[in-house]
Every structure is written in C-alpha cells, then in structure tokens.
Computed example of a mutant assay.
Amino acid sequence: MLMIRSLRTQLGPWASRASFSTSAAAVEAERTIRDGYRNDWSKEEIKSIYDSPILDLVFHGAQVHRHVHKFREVQQCTLLSIKTGGCSEDCSYCPQSSRYDTGLKAQRLMNKVCCTLGMLEKQQALELKKAGLTAYNHNLDTSREHYPNIITTRTYDERLETLQYVREAGISVCSGGIIGLGEAEEDRVGLLHTLATLPNHPESVPINALVAVKGTPLQDQKPVEIWEMIRMIATARIVMPKAMVRLSAGRVKFSIPEQALCFLAGANSIFTGDKLLTTPNNDFDADQLMFKILGLTPKSPSFSEEIPVPESERCEEAVYVAG
C-alpha cells in the first residue's frame, strides 16, 4: 500500500482512482477459484471480465486455469471430413455450402463412418448414445442477436434444442463459436453468456477465428487479431473453468509467441494436422516444435474411439478424434 500511495503522489493529477482499482477479471477469477462452477452469470458480469485490462485478463485467466487444470497439458485433436461440400445450409462463413462458389468439389459420404449429422431430435440423440457416441459438437457460432445475419436455414433455438437433447442423452457437449463474423463485442459477450448459463457448461468450448474463404459472403472480413482471441479465451476460462477451451480455426495465422499467450490465458486444447477439413492449419511438425519450445505436454486422451461430430468448427460433417 505504501508503494501505491507513493506512486500516486508522484503521478499527481495523472493518477485516477480507476488506474489502481481491482479489475473484474481479478474479482471474478478469485470467486471462481473459491466457489467453483456456476451458471448464473449475468451478461454484465461477463462483459466486465471481457473488458478488463488485457494483462489482468491473461493473468487471472491463467490463475483459474492453473487451479483447475494441469496447466502445461494441451489436448491435441484431429478432424477427418467424412462428407465434403454440397451442404444445403447457408452459413455465411462456410466454403462447403452449395450456395456459394468456392471452388470446392462435393464428395460422397465416406463408407467408414455411419452417424446422424446436423440437428438432432431427442430420439436420435438417444440412439447415438446407445451406439457408443461419447461427445457431440454443435457450435452456436455467435450471439442470438447476430445469428440471423450469418445463418437463415436453421434457428438459434434449434441449435440450443440439439444441445439439450445431446446433454439429456448423456453425451458430452462440445460447443463454441467463431469471432470475426462482423459481430460487435457485445455479440462475443452474448455468445459466452449463452454457453456459461447453460444448465451444464460444455465439456469443450472451441474458440474459432474466421478463416475468410473466397466465394463466401464473409470473404472480405477483417482478420481477427490475437488480442481478440485472448480476450475470448481468458473470459471463457474464468466463466467456464472446467471446460476444455480449444484454440481452434484460424490458429495457423498466429505465431508461436501469440499462441503461447492463448495457452497462458487458459486455452488447453488445439486441432492439429495441416488441414482443418477444407482450410489450412498448423502442420504436425510445427506443433511438435511449439510444444517443445513452450514445454507443453500432450494431454492423455479421455477416450480413444472416434467420435462423430456433426459440425466441427464450421458446420462440416466430420469425425473428431481426441488424443
């Protein structure tokens, strides 16, 4: 306290009280560490965390992460597309939509995977559970308010209903979103608020940066900056402490130091392999080098079987393999 008072004295009129106030990230991280899981977050609470000074946000995201997880462990997952292109949906970011001319050639469904894809009815979810499905990915993509600007062929409530059926069937939920879709910061907060106030938090929360693909309506979107990813990751870590927060699509654009900040802020899962279905990703050797430089260790898989995923990170049909 003596040091702070002395510094205030030296700075004189330039030292506002706000400069030395405790950030919301600090307050809420401490409460998360003390009280654990909660799903009664207000949108204002999450916004105050998201708006905290970036260094505070990284530090306190790291505090929560180290309290709940083995902080050097990072889960490595891969995606295998079982049906490429020819999708009837109109997701504005997706090169696989048949409505856009992206130069992608549609392929038939692979013979090696048989699963129900896309929206689920209750009975379908139960049948998938009976067949041995352990996890299901179904991203919300963005906030409820911005969603109609991105997708019109399926509703936000239908997505939430699918997550409900998956959860009720006893299947783990993987659900996150994409930033860089032309949304406002309020929409990013809204997405996190929706996820964090589900009856149970998703076991996995992918945070994707838009990979703008020529031929899609979002081809000219401004690239996502690393600070935007860090804010999303650290806020997600504080409000959903037990979730695997996955640094997902768009990672290929970020350097090793930039990715290191994401891991420090609370990310503990990545997709590995030189291609994420139809878009580029960091290759295996590059990731191995990064793990060595940063002292990261692969997280032991919680399951070894292949897991059918209906939407992956961009609504494509895929198999998700955790390892």
Rank of each mutant, 00 (worst) to 15 (best):
G12L: 11
G180T: 13
A169I: 08
A322I: 11
S19H: 12
R246N: 04
F291M: 08
D51V: 04
G180N: 07
R31S: 03
D157C: 08
T32Y: 01
E145L: 14
V113Q: 02
G61L: 08
A318N: 06
L218S: 03
Q123C: 03
G323Y: 15
R314H: 13
S81H: 12
Q288G: 02
A169F: 08
S21P: 00
L218P: 00
S19E: 03
E145D: 15
M290H: 03
R17H: 14
S312D: 05
V224I: 06
L109T: 08
A29P: 02
F263M: 04
A135H: 08
R188P: 00
N282H: 10
R154D: 01
L140R: 09
G103D: 01
L294I: 10
N282V: 12
S6V: 13
I151G: 01
D56K: 06
I54C: 04
D101I: 12
G36H: 06
F20K: 02
D90Q: 07
W14A: 06
P308Y: 15
A135Q: 14
Q75W: 05
S16L: 09
A267G: 09
T278I: 12
L296F: 11
G36I: 08
L195N: 07
L128H: 13
R31F: 05
L181Y: 12
T78E: 00
G215T: 14
E317F: 14
S81M: 09
E305L: 09
S98F: 12
K122L: 01
C174K: 08
C114G: 01
T32S: 06
Y50R: 02
R5T: 08
P241V: 14
L191A: 08
E183R: 11
T194I: 05
T142H: 00
P217M: 14
G295C: 13
V309E: 00
G170D: 02
F71W: 10
A260D: 03
P53H: 13
V166P: 02
Q288V: 15
A26C: 13
N208T: 11
M119N: 07
A18H: 11
E316A: 14
S48Y: 04
A62W: 10
E121H: 15
F284K: 08
P53W: 12
G323M: 13
M232V: 07
E316C: 09
E158P: 02
V252G: 03
D51S: 11
L133H: 14
K130E: 14
G61P: 02
L276H: 11
D40L: 12
H201L: 02
V113F: 12
